[in-house]
Computed example of a mutant assay.
Amino acid sequence: MPKISPQEWFKSPLGQYLLALEYDYINPVVMDTFGFYAIQMGNFDIDFLDQSRIQNKFSLNSNHPDLMTSNEALPFDEASVDLLIAPHILEQMIEPYELLKEIHRVLMPEGRLIITGFNPVSLWGIKRLLSFDIDYPWNTKFISLSKIKEWLPIVGLEMIEGKMGCYVPPIQQESWLRKIHAMEKLGDRWWPMLGGFYSLVIQKRVHGMNAIQPLWKKKLIKTPVYSAQRSRTFRLKP
């Protein structure tokens, strides 16, 4: 049996370091997203929605949840959610593709999904392959970015922005994490695809409406119009 749960690991020095970076990447997108309902999924203590301008915000299956439910069946109406944040959820799922389909169902047209995941093509991915550690996160699926990109158009979602981060090796010593923090800037410049995690901003596709033909036309021709709009808790110590 695993000794460390996801909740415990995200409270560790390395987990806190990772969440601080992810918060900095996600927060500008959250602040720039508008609507009526925002949902955060996850099982750790951080509020990615604390700077959101959306009034109705709910946490799902967190340490202090507003709602508890199965990730496979979200308790929301179809096309009702404007923003959904799912950090490190897909890699914990038996069927991550099915969760993407369920998220597509509940998202509003043009609604946004933000996901984060561990990158298998990184120092973190190497450790997972070479170790026999049964603790989180090394016992989860590291889903490649190419696989995510393959799934998205099938379920009707489109990636509009993506970033990687956490280029440091996965060590738990807080003092060393501070010393090698400069690797983040170096990684962004020299090896941007080798970050320990990826953060993706995804949008629900909208196929538009059928064009309305003039009344004198005897035969209506359905012409689809396609549109695609492109649209702290933890901080690193100096």
Rank of each mutant, 00 (worst) to 15 (best):
L83C: 10
F48C: 02
K11Y: 08
V206A: 07
A211P: 00
L107V: 00
F34T: 09
K219W: 06
Y198T: 11
G156F: 05
G165K: 07
Q51N: 14
K179H: 08
S52N: 06
E102T: 00
S146N: 15
L107C: 02
R105K: 14
E150I: 07
P137K: 10
V206Q: 08
F234E: 12
S52D: 01
I103H: 08
L186D: 14
A38W: 05
T233C: 07
K237R: 13
P238N: 15
R112L: 13
F197V: 12
M93E: 15
L113S: 08
H88E: 06
P13S: 08
Q172G: 03
G165Q: 06
M31E: 15
D66G: 01
L107P: 00
N61H: 02
P65D: 01
F142R: 10
S59A: 07
G35P: 01
E78N: 01
P238V: 11
G35S: 01
M108D: 02
M209F: 06
D47K: 03
V121G: 01
E78M: 00
S131D: 13
K149M: 06
N56E: 02
A73H: 12
K101D: 02
Y198P: 06
V155D: 13
A73G: 01
N56M: 05
K57Y: 00
K204P: 06
L236I: 14
